[in-house]
Amino acid sequence: MSQKVIQYIGRTTDFRGNTLWELVANLPNWGVGRMLIRNMFQRYPEPCFMRILKVQAVDEKPGEERKVRVTVEKTWRGVTQPKPVEIYSTSYKADYELVPVEEEQKFLKNTKKVGEVILPNKIEFPPLLREYIREETGESNPLMNVHFKKTYNKQARIAAEGEQPTVQLGMSLSKPPEVSAKLYEGLL
């Protein structure tokens, strides 16, 4: 008897795993204290995982994947967020996976951090606006503040006084990274 081969038909997906309800519903004490991962976020080398703190069941709605309200402690790209996060609206995504207790150490021992990203404090205006401002104020090289709202998810920061930014945000096409230098061959 030949081995059974599963052949998938239809659209492919990047998700891999189960919906959150499928995972928690079967666990003793709703899996409080267990570690979860989103497979989508495993593309980052830094550890991304969540630990279940609280589970609230939500009624099933006909014709929809069942959702569940789960409060987790989230570690995102090596940084544990100070406040617990509630997962509800994304709980239907079949992308969650439960980490076996013996494999949790793999995530906990991963101490990689995101490289420091420092945004410049001020950048130049887009060309037309710059011309207008030059005409109005007479300033030869007007600069505007960079808009950046710091959240727990963001690990970049704005350069302090006298600090050298690591990212160039100029209006010109700045130097591409090593990986994609090939795209600009003969152009730059």
């Binding site: 505007m144 808009h147 950046f148 945000l169 591409p176 990986v179 994609s180 795209l183």
Partner: peptide, 30 residues
Amino acid sequence: ERKKQTEEERVELLRLHNIYKTQLRSVRQY
């Protein structure tokens, strides 16, 4: 068919988009 982006394309587009969005946000704030 789902077209695959090459790694170099993905990285470059991400970079360009990030720059563009930050610039646009900055202009709007200004």
